[in-house]
Design a protein around this nucleic acid. Structure first.
Lengths: 346, 346
DNA sequence: CTTGACAATCGAAGCGCTTTTATGATAATT
DNA sequence: AATTATCATAAAAGCGCTTCGATTGTCAAG
């Protein structure tokens, strides 16, 4: 396997000149010399070693990707992480970076840190790290450029990219208000997730602006799952004065709501409007097709990678939280409430 | 940033001993020495450089992944490549390998080869490379361990992993025969793809075994798209003596068939049975839920990665084609044909 | 006591490249 | 002819690690 030494010897030029040709600079090189050297490289079937180069330059032109929460065995099949990864790959490709997927398990800082700080990549995108792990602070303490995706960085020492939940929740609730709904309920995700709490807070806020205070029991804690949505929706729809619209914490919950409504003979959107959150791939295909807030997952990945590349190339990047705008996708699960007092009966 | 030199100096031991501790051997080390060195590492916050190690050892413990055909901007969102990638990641994780995703564009051999033969990874999995490119032969000519996924390797110089199309097509056609169908049509994918041709050949073969020769016009060339399926299905269903079942070249085509049938008022599976191929995520959710042949994409990725790791670790791997068994998923788009001669009328 | 065997450690070369410094040669410009 | 640019060189250090032959110390066997 030919090395740069071989090229130098064979072409008759010095190591320094060959290296200079290889990197297009910084010194000027006569055109003929360049030709001769390039020809020799071809002849010897020479390809430079990124590893040796990485060692010498202390830059590998590679981005590291680390998935936190999601099961390692389902990283890519999961729609969320697949989209984020897609964005990262796209942005990396644009700037000529490769992407290394770290497969080491996410344990505690002591055992996992070495795997990730191996200088193999110029920086790390950490996607959805566990909030209760000591690994993020430990990573942040390294010299390694770091960007997080979906990380409630209260300490603000790590640049973070995420969807703008405040804006998204506002879009959803204002959509329902705009249709004329007044009795609107909210099914939350798990109360220890920042996103759940934010969406709930904005829900209350926007209703408040419209002069509406939801009755007790119209905000139900739960989790981001179809089962939880189903159960909570049944409870809600079974009460004497049910809501005319439900803002579901995410699409999974919304699916549960739709199921519950079907079981109880409540028509959607005739008797009940439902808004989800995320716009999972299936949401546009279910029946009725779900009105939802589309999260810009691909863009989140792209943005995170771009930030990381900036950092890796020496630019200062503020450790701010970058929130990307979601988009309301209006489909068929929402409609104006039935006029007047014609409460549905079953 | 601490290096192994710092650890050696601080701990008072030699470089060689520190390295030996770092790698657990091969030389014996006194327990106390090991302790002292490990403690020093901790104190200095030392983490070894995978790059330097890679240079010294000429092994990086990293697998490279290269996607051929699929648009680079949609590598992961595409269900096929996502599943394969998933499998690769899983297998790599099992053996402690990281995975580097090469983002360089797939051009001709001359311009792209260097990007991929940069010694950054111990081997390459190439997924669905273009059949008309000179890059695969060029890659094969390198010293680099190479495994292909979905590569019609007539030359047989590269280990290849793929779904067993012969078996899958047989499953599909025998399923239809088993239900009692005799008038079965086949809508092919593009005739220059190996998979299309294989599925067609097996279709004929299996029918032949049952003593059936499909009438002319019952095998329609096309491509793996909903549009092509739609168009061909209309043509087929409009003829005086239409088939009672269609074996679609893949699920996309099958969707086109379902659409066409709906438009023409042909009920599925009452008047027409449809079998797809691939089992895309949506196929289980459409209406009617599609009977189809599930390709083992995740396993294909896993198998490819395992083969590659074997090669990278010095084992000989025959340059054979490894075909993984698909699985027939029976859902609601197939049923026995209407008995007797009660041809449907519209 | 020797001697050999073994355990524990060291020294130094090597992996393939970049980069810097000092220096020289050639060609183009006054 | 002197000055300046331009192109190339050699030599050497450095990147952070591995690896192997050599060396030292220790102890049981002879």
């Amino acid at each position: 396997m030919a090395t740069i030494y071989d090229v130098a010897k064979e072409s008759g030029f010095s190591l320094a000149t060959v290296s200079n040709v290889l990197n297009n600079g910084p010194r000027p090189v006569r055109a003929e010399t360049r030709q001769r050297i390039l020809a020799t490289m071809q002849r010897l079937n020479y390809h430079p070693s990124a590893v040796a180069r990485g060692l010498a330059r202390q830059r590998t032109h590679t981005l590291g990707v680390l998935f936190g929460v999601v099961e390692p065995s389902a990283v890519v099949l999961n729609a969320y992480s697949a989209a984020v990864l897609q964005g990262i790959l796209t942005a990396a490709a644009d700037d000529g970076y490769n992407v290394t997927h770290y497969t080491a398990p996410w344990l505690d800082a002591e055992r996992s840190l070495s795997s990730f700080r191996d200088r193999r990549s110029d920086g790390l995108v950490v996607v959805a790290p566990p909030t209760d792990s000591d690994l993020m602070p430990a990573l942040a303490g390294l010299r390694l450029p770091l960007v997080a995706v979906s990380w409630p960085s209260e300490r603000g020492d790590i640049p973070t990219v995420d969807g703008d939940d405040r804006m998204g929740a506002r879009l959803a609730v204002e959509h329902l208000l705009g249709l004329g709904h007044r009795r609107i309920a909210h099914l939350m995700g798990h109360a220890n997730l920042l996103s759940s709490v934010t969406r709930r807070d904005v829900f209350l806020e926007v209703l408040g602006e419209a002069g509406i205070a939801p009755p007790p029991g119209f905000i139900l804690p739960g989790e981001y799952s179809t089962e939880a949505g189903h159960e909570n929706a049944r409870r809600l729809l079974d009460c004497p004065d049910p809501p005319t619209a439900i803002f579901a914490g995410n699409d999974e919950i919304a699916v549960g709501v739709v199921e519950a409504a079907r079981e109880l003979g409540v028509s959607i959107p005739g008797q009940l409007s439902v808004v989800g959150y995320d716009d999972r791939p299936l949401s546009g295909l279910m029946s009725p097709r779900l009105t939802t807030v589309r999260q810009p997952f691909v863009q989140i990945g792209e943005h995170a990678a771009k930030l990381l590349i900036q950092r890796a190339e020496g630019e200062e990047v503020a450790a701010a939280t970058h929130l990307l705008a979601p988009e309301l996708v209006v489909r068929e699960s929402t409609a104006p409430p039935r006029t007047g007092n014609d409460r549905r009966s079953r």
